[in-house]
Amino acid sequence: MSVEDGKSNQQEMLSVTIAGIKMKTPVMTASGTFGFGLEYKDFVDLNKIGAVVVKGTTLLPRSGNKGRRIAETPAGMLNSIGLENPGVDEFLATILPRLGEYDVPIIVNISGNTVEEYGELAARLNVAGVAGVELNISCPNVKEGGIAFGTNCASASSVVRQVKNNTNLPVIVKLSPNVTDIVAMAQAVEEAGADAISLINTLLGMSIDIHKWRPVLGNVVGGLSGPAVKPIAVRMVWQVAQAVQVPIIGMGGIVTAEDAIEFMLAGASAVAVGTANFINPCAVQSVADGIKDYVRQSGLSHVKELVGKVNI
């Protein structure tokens, strides 16, 4: 076997197709932790990663929340950015063309105040260069929209249906863990036409400054992410994997390849690296490299062979 063949085999070993989106590796970036991708270009070859899921985008620009926006917690962090973003028009006009220089699927995470806004966003993003949309119905940091749609099966379904009616692109739905029954939510969005499910968004949390007797975050509460949430995320992926047919993108505290493999064994067909991008700007690449080593060392021929293989 020539060196060339070896290389292509290695690449084949990791390639996956999620909801029709072809990816070179099953490792994506989690929305809100990787900017629009370009911010990381000095550290990661964007051409080599699974997919870039860009910062949550809204119809109009948003300036985000006031006051302190992050707080470090044991093995994690709270954030309450509040969906700061330049708006979909600016994204389409100036950011998407720059991303077009890279050979990587671009998935746009979208967030609306109303069902109609989700539809409108999806319609505007139904353009060349966008590989898919991820519906953020789980942001804990904005008053209107966001999580309001993600904690009620009927509202979640109507958002998904509205978006499906407005785009030909694959539709991924990012679910909130802040619900009593994650399986019911997953089944509802699948039923409504979701092509894939991202699990999990952040868990609602709070930190208090005991010297000032005040919340650390300006927004009082925020979303918890990082290694601290991983066991919850793995559990939710595993539960949902038993109940739906559509592929699951697992995320929540993935720092290493070992973390990612846990998610895949639980039933995730792909994974996303989030908070770890802040700790190691090359994390998305090192996780993919580690998965490749693991697959090879385990005597498997493809990463797909890991998906859902946990023995109960």
Binding site: G32, T33, F34, G35, Y40, K55, R69, I70, I81, E84
Partner: peptide, 8 residues
């Protein structure tokens, strides 16, 4: 968090 414009 990130120091490079990614997290806002």
């Amino acid at each position: 968090a990130c120091g490079i414009g990614g997290c806002l």
